[in-house]
Amino acid sequence: MSTAREEILQRVRTAIGTQAPEEPVQREYRQAGTLSEEAKIDLFIDRLHDYNAEVYRCAAGEEAVTIAEALTARGKKRILIPPGFPAALLPTGPDFVRDTALDYRDIDATEGALTCATAAIAMTGSLILTHSATEGRRALTLIPDYHLCVVYTNQLFETVPEGLRALGGRRTSPVTTIAGPSATADIEMTRVKGVHGPRVLDVIVVAAG
């Protein structure tokens, strides 16, 4: 008796006949963006506002002040940070808990998470996380009800192809793309913002120095 693997592969081969030369794929869709730097940033911010995200802009070096401002506005005092989040970016005041090997229930008990990102896409308002040391493991930005993300303008791309290709070797790390807080339209097609993932997402856009 042949194994399921052998049998399925044999069925496929019988179904398609002899191997054909690769079918051509024409990639005539838009790959590279065309917007100016400032227009691209404006588009990104506009898309984020679409999702009710609060957006802050600051210059390089002003991250700590801006992080403090964002957390104060949301009344957050105790925030999780990934193991490699740069200490230089942290303001004094809020209590930052570094995620070493916290239990999921401990994460559930925190007020939110603060992370960096790998890339961002202006057209869709997406943040892309590859869960490096500055972004934290996936649970960190999933279980808490609040996510504050710091993204630099040199990480921002206009189109989806540009954003995904920017991942390079990081593409086989876990990848999460985030476009706004979790949402559902399952009830009468009414968009409800916030179901299981963080219900509030804020973004700090830092002008790369």
């Binding site: 898309r47 896409i121 057209m123 869709t124 869960h131 876990p174 999460t176």
Partner: peptide, 13 residues
């Protein structure tokens, strides 16, 4: 324009 979340993973991390 984009759904809120896409998860892409490769094996075990």
């Amino acid at each position: 324009r984009m759904n809120p979340y896409n998860s892409i993973w490769t094996g075990v991390t």
